[in-house]
Structure formats: C-alpha cells, structure tokens
C-alpha cells in the first residue's frame, strides 16, 4: 500500500509524464507490445527519429491522416528498419555538418517486430550493426506474425500453435525454438545488448536509457505479450510478462561490452514452465510429457545463459 500511496511522488521521477505515443490508436485490448512502445518512447524523450518496420505497431498507429506518434517517424517497408535507421543517422550527420539542422544530438532508433528483426529484417539488421551506425534497434517480440493473422516466425516458441504451425496429430505446433537474436547481436560486437519486458517498466526504462546513451549500435529485445495471438485473456498481460521471467522462459539480462548480467535476479528455484504455459491457448494442446520437454529446453537455455553470466568477462576487462 505504501508504494501505491506514494506513486504520484515517485513515478514521475522514474518515468516521464509526457506521452510520446498518443492514446486512440487501434491496438488490441491488453496489447503488451504497445505498452512496451509507450514506455520506450517515454524513456527516449524528444530527440529521436523513429524508423518503424511494417507490422502491428505501424498499422495501428498511422492510419492517415491520423497518427499516434508525437516524435519524428518514418516507415519504409517491412524488411529494412535497420537500413532506414542507418540512412536517418547518415543524413542527420550530413545535415548537421552543413548547418542545415541545429547542432544537437538526435538518436536514430529503429523499431521492428520479431519478423522484421529475426526473419525478413535480419540482413538489414546485421548490416547496420556491423557497420557500427549510431543506431538503437528495438525488437518488439510477440512471437509470431500477429499483424497478418498469427503465422509462425523464427521467434515463435517451441510447440506453440500458430496458424502456420497448427497443433495437429503429426506435429504439435512449432517444431523449433526461438532464434537467439540477442546472442547474434553480441556476436556482432554490439556494445550494449539487453532483453526486457514491459511488466518490468523501470527495468525497461533503464535499459532504453542505457541503449540510447551508447554512441554506436545497441540492441534491445523486448518481450511483448499478445493476448490476441496467444489466445489468452487480455487482463493477464502484465501477469504473463512476469510469469515468463519467473519461469525462466524469457530471462531479463543485459550484455555490456561482452559482460553478461542478470537484471532480474533469478530465484534459486524457478517456477515450473507450466505456470506460464497454462494461461495460453497456443499451448493448450500440450500433454504432461510435452510440458516436460518444454521444461527441459528452458532449463537448458537457462544453464547456457547462467554459464555466460558467471563465466564471461567483459571485452575490456583484464
């Protein structure tokens, strides 16, 4: 109760009161992705240019002549948000040098969904990160192509049912696990890589601020709950975002110059994955044995991550 009573005093110190993403957009009820976006924009502030890939966030926010965006925004197709952000950064630099725009720092931020990041957008992302643009890239991962009707992507979790990975007799949903894009970004030598989730807003804000402060490439992978696509109740969005972290299915961590750090300490004993899975229609078809299999995969991934957290030194450490 104390925390809630003091909310008006403390919250504005932690999160900007100003809205950069106006209400009245067309996102689904309980959309975790648009919540993430709202918090991210609050953490970024005014001095940004956003490059947004085609996807849910673009389509729900920009029906001409209305827009939810209060910051400069450009959309150029689906597969190239990172290249758009590269061009924005290059042009801002060129114009600033020629005195065509005020000489102050403006961050180029590219935002894409999981398809626009891990599938069709991966080449442009890899190119932009390798070139070392002063570009912050945010993946809003809702684990499938929700905008086109819940088709699987390479970020759809193991065994989840989607419209193109249906749960049938032969195959029970998605056959593969999630492509680990944060790891791919670390392999590119990106100095700041982090995972986040809007159920932990202060953690998300802190990571956005860190990513923005990097004068170079940075990458944020944000778990974005999707009641519509995951076949779950819209009022449990925040709870799902907490459960996914507490079960270790989506751990929150950051990698600064190669040094891994958990930003949400893991309990000694994680909650069983079933606590997370059971709320979602996309996992409805899983048997007790299937859930054991999922648990095994999650344990395996957690072990890999914990090995890095415990064992790897930063690139600049002696």
């Amino acid at each position: 109760m104390t925390l809630v009573q003091n909310f008006e005093i403390f919250a504005p110190k932690l999160i900007d009161r100003k809205e950069y993403f106006s209400p009245g957009h067309r996102a689904c009820q309980g959309c975790g992705e648009v919540l993430a976006l709202r918090i991210i924009l609050k953490a970024l502030g005014d001095d940004v240019v956003i490059s947004n890939a085609t996807g849910c966030m673009e389509i729900i926010s920009t029906a001409y002549p209305q827009t939810a965006w209060e910051v400069p925004y450009i959309h150029v197709a689906f597969e190239n948000a990172a290249a758009v952000g590269s061009g924005v950064e290059a042009a801002l630099k060129a114009l600033r040098r020629k005195g065509r725009i005020p000489d102050r720092y403006v961050k180029s931020v590219a935002i894409a969904g999981d398809g626009g990041t891990a599938d069709i957008g991966l080449q442009a992302l890899s190119g932009a990160m390798e070139r070392g643009h002063d570009l912050m890239f945010v993946c809003l991962d809702n684990e499938a192509y929700m905008n086109t009707g819940i088709q699987r992507s390479s970020e759809t979790p193991f065994m989840a049912a989607t419209t193109t990975s249906p749960a049938g007799k032969e195959i029970k949903g998605q056959r593969t696990g999630k492509k680990n894009v944060p790891e791919i970004m670390v392999a590119h030598g990106v100095p700041y890589v982090a995972t986040a989730c809007p159920s932990y807003p202060i953690d998300l804000v802190n990571k956005v601020k860190k990513a923005k402060a990097v004068k170079g490439p940075s990458y944020l992978h944000v778990f974005s709950m999707c009641p519509t696509g995951w076949r779950c109740a819209s009022e449990i969005t925040i709870k799902l975002g907490k459960l996914v972290v507490e079960t270790g299915v989506f751990p929150l961590y950051e990698v600064e110059n190669g040094k891994y750090r958990l930003t949400m300490e893991m309990p000694k004993k994680l909650r069983p994955v079933e606590d997370y899975l059971k709320h979602q229609g996309r996992f409805r078809h899983l048997s007790a044995d299937d859930i054991k299999l999922v648990q095994k995969k999650v344990d395996y991934e957690i072990k890999k991550l914990m090995d890095k957290v415990g064992g790897l030194k930063g690139w600049d450490e002696k």
Binding site: D46, D47, V48, V49, E58, I59, T62, A63, Y64, P65, T67, W69, E70, V71, P72, Y73, I74, H75, V76, V88, L92, L95, R100, I101, P102, V106
Partner: peptide, 13 residues
C-alpha cells in the same frame, strides 16, 4: 526535414 524540430509521420498507412 525529418528532425525533432518538426515531428512528422512519414509513410503512414
């Protein structure tokens, strides 16, 4: 000029 001085939404749907 796409910069914060004059925020614009380019290429909406």
């Amino acid at each position: 000029i796409l910069s914060p001085e004059n925020p614009k939404n380019i290429n909406p749907v």
